[in-house]
Design a protein around this nucleic acid. Structure first.
Lengths: 144, 144
DNA sequence: ACAATTTGTTAGGCTTACCTTACAATTTTT
DNA sequence: AAAAATTGTAAGGTAAGCCTAACAAATTGT
């Protein structure tokens, strides 16, 4: 189950995101979103379909399987938590936070992620920590 | 200057580490450390030498250039700080912490790293934060 | 309905980073 | 100094992931 490359994980994640606003997704939207060629998307989709993570029938569009959804959601959870940690706790601006989340979500392991998730929750509930950090450590740089 | 692949960054980092215990390093040590073939190391070293990050003359061994040292040290700093954050703040065991540091050090951006470094410093100086976190959030899992 | 546009696929290429096998060069042992 | 072992390199291969160009299929506009 956990054998996807960073690249295929990205495709799956985007498919899942795009499916939230429409019933089915076309390959060209992915190409645009990722800024890569339709040909490359076509290849990648074949791989995902082969692994039974999506159902892909050319012009009919893409749907995600149960199996695919589970994997996509795990990545999306990582994405969101990492973004929240960078943005809310570290005080990084949103686009940089997202960008780093995108990079790290594919390489962080479960153990560390689970712990970070708890830590972020903890920081969220104890906002005085964050305030203290920002007050004392971020005096001469504002990047929020 | 910042154009190294994760892989080449790893080579450079290991060379730098190995140089701490000996005046010059042989390719075979790197192969053993990374568990890859001598042939692959040979190729990678040629690339690093081409970029003027190391001086490599076959059997004479490898030395690092000024330029190479600067890049290696940046990665090593990231490695150490990430490891410290995972281990000391999140309470992850050392080998998992190191493993995740290895994965993330090549993809985290400077902005986020710099901020995390400050945050880790802050957490270190305010050990009650970590204690509180560990007390309240890590009650039924011990992984330190 | 049919022409134009959009979307998808195929074929052939490129790069990175690994591999094995075989050979060359160096070092070590005896 | 010769044999043995170690270390390095070259050649040829694989797989992932991207590309462009050309073509095929579907959709849209009129």
């Amino acid at each position: 189950m956990k054998d996807l490359s960073a690249s295929l994980e990205d495709y799956l994640e985007i498919i899942c995101n795009l499916l939230e606003s429409s019933k089915s997704v076309k390959a060209v939207s992915i190409a645009k979103r990722l800024n890569i060629s339709r040909a490359s998307v076509s290849e990648a989709l074949s791989k995902l379909a082969e692994k039974d993570l999506i159902v892909y029938e050319g012009h009919k569009g893409i749907t995600i399987t149960e199996k695919g959804l589970i994997q996509a959601q795990r990545v999306i959870t990582k994405h969101n938590t990492l973004t929240a940690f960078f943005e809310q706790t570290l005080g990084i601006n949103k686009s940089i936070a997202e960008n780093n989340a995108c990079r790290i979500e594919h390489v962080i392991t479960e153990e560390v992620f689970d712990r970070l998730e708890k830590f972020q929750e903890f920081c969220n509930k104890n906002s005085e920590i964050i305030n203290e950090f920002k007050k004392g450590y971020l005096t001469n740089s504002r990047n929020e």
